[in-house]
Structures are given as C-alpha cells and as structure tokens.
C-alpha cells in the first residue's frame, strides 16, 4: 500500500512539474517573442506579415478569378475558401516555424538547451509551452488578418465573405483551435527533433515543411484536386481537416465529420511526435548533439 501511495505521489509530483514546465514554456515564449522590442513595433510585426500574406493570396485570387470569368456567387464561395485557408494557415505556419527554429535559438544563442534538457521535466513540456505561446501569437494574427482582410476585399474588390454571425457554429470553431494547435505543436516537435540531431536544416526545414503543407492541405484549393496518390497524403494531414472544420463552422455547416478526422489525425500526430522525439533524444545522446554548437 505504501509503495502504491509512493508511486501515486511520484506521479502527481511529475504531473505538477510537467504543468509548471508547460506554463514556463508559455511564459518564456511570450517574453522572448514579445520583449525584443517595444509593444508598438511588436504588434506591427505580429500583424503586418500575416496581413501581407493574406492580402497577397487574396489579390492572386482576384486577378485569377477576373481572368477566368466565373460567376459572382461562385466567386464569393471560392474567395471564402481561399481567404479562410490563407488566414487559418497562419496557425500551422507560425507554430511549426517557431518550434523548428527553437533548437538553434536555445542551443547556440542562449546556450540553455542542455540545461533545460537535464531538468526533470526535460524538453517535451517546454516545447509544448513554447508551441502554445506561438499559438497565442498566431491567434492575434488570425483575428486581425480576418478582420482587416475582409474589410479590404469587401470595400475595394466587392468580395464579401459569406459569414453570418448567427450561422457560425462557435462550438465547433472553438474546439477546432486546440485540436489543430495540438497537431501543429506535434508536427513542430518532429521538426524540433530533426534539428536536435542535425545542424544544417535549422532555417530551411520549417520553410520546406510549411511549403509542402500549404500545397497539400487544401489551403487555396481542395486537396482532392491533387493527383493521386498525393491527394491521399493531403487527406491524411491534420492541417487539411483543421481547415475543413474551420470553414464548415464559419459557414454554419455540419463540421463534426471533419472534426472526427481532425481528432484522429491529431492523435496520430501526437503519438508519432512522442515516439519520434523519444527516439531522437536517444540518438542525440549517442551523437552528443544536445549541446554541440553549429558545425558550419
């Protein structure tokens, strides 16, 4: 009985420590990403880049749709698809890029990685915390981009988003965010793990990954349009289902079918990330890369 109590106590201490480590990851992520400049410059940085990306995608749509001569009603539906895809893609892009780059920052710039690694909570809760901090930043970017983009395209290009506040399925929309974030943090953890044992992909890995995700996940066109079997890969990605749930919930359609796929793909992604991370940590300890500085 005493042994069982001891095990329970140990587990609760572990849980307590893990929660605190996640909280610290969020706190540090916020501090690191927001404290490098004054609040005005930070806010500008936080919203300027995503707005520019969203407007760029919108403008490409405007030019493309004008040339093809599609009807106004189809044009608005297609615009909705493209615009919401570009806006909500900010989540996976921000989270995966920040986590992939985190290794380089902590290992070389702050020399803190090995000291985080040898704490009892080690890397995973910290990575999750940093991912959540990025998701919070991404949320600001998403909301602002959605508002600013819809105003610009509505006023200057007569493109109205068919979103009606009364029809939005808020429950599905709100539920999709943590599910999507969990999947993107898991993906970010995989990139983090790769960068933990490599040195030459620090900058490029996340760029390649977000580029591939953008292409395969139904951001600006449905993944079903991709040639088989590439379309299958797109259908398996949580980003695809995340965007499907978001779109359906904004339009007031039934989003729960896509939600089930999102849930499944997120669980799968978490499992893959945890297994991958564990394996890579072991490789990093064999190769001695946890505290090794860049080799170039």
């Amino acid at each position: 009985m005493a042994v069982v109590d001891g095990v329970h106590k140990m587990r609760s201490v572990d849980t307590y420590r893990t929660v605190r480590a996640v909280m610290q990851g969020i706190w540090l992520g916020w501090k690191v990403e927001s404290n490098w400049t004054n609040p005005f410059v930070f806010l500008t940085y936080l919203i300027a880049k995503p707005i520019a990306s969203v407007i760029l995608v919108g403008l490409v749509f405007v030019i493309g749709s004008s040339a093809s001569g599609i009807s106004d009603s189809s044009r608005e539906d297609l615009f909705f698809y493209t615009f919401t895809g570009a806006v909500f893609f900010i989540y996976p892009a921000t989270i995966t890029i920040s986590l992939a780059y985190l290794v380089h920052e902590d290992r070389a710039k702050y020399e803190a990685l090995k000291h985080i690694y040898i704490t009892p909570s080690s890397l995973k809760p910290y990575i999750v915390g940093r991912g959540i901090a990025s998701a919070i930043n991404a949320s600001v970017s998403v909301v602002v981009s959605l508002l600013v983009g819809s105003i610009i395209f509505s006023n200057y290009f007569a493109l109205h988003l068919p979103i009606h506040a009364s029809r939005v399925d808020y429950l599905a929309l709100i539920a999709s965010i943590p599910l999507g974030v969990a999947a993107f943090i898991s993906l970010g953890m995989i990139l983090y793990a790769i960068n933990l044992v490599t040195f030459k992909l620090q900058y490029s890995l996340s760029e390649y990954t977000t580029g591939i995700l953008f292409l395969l996940s139904g951001v600006v066109f449905p993944s079903s349009m991709l040639p088989y079997p590439v379309s299958l890969i797109g259908e398996a990605l949580p980003t695809t289902h995340f965007l499907n749930v978001v779109r359906a919930s904004l339009m007031g359609y039934n989003a729960y079918g896509s939600m089930a796929y999102l849930l499944l793909s997120t669980i799968l992604m978490i499992v893959i990330a945890l297994i991958f991370m564990k394996r890579v940590e072991s490789i990093a300890r064999i190769k001695g890369t946890i505290d090794r500085k860049a080799e170039y």
């Binding site: 404290n35 490098w36 702050y110 020399e111 090995k114 000291h115 040898i118």
Partner: peptide, 14 residues
C-alpha cells in the same frame, strides 16, 4: 545540476 564555465546560459531579455 550542471554549471559549465565560460558559458552564460540564459535569456538576454529576461
């Protein structure tokens, strides 16, 4: 715990 001399681990903005 571990302290490595010649290193200054930590976050500059903290």
């Amino acid at each position: 715990n571990l302290v490595s001399g010649g290193e200054t681990p930590g976050y500059g903005m903290l």
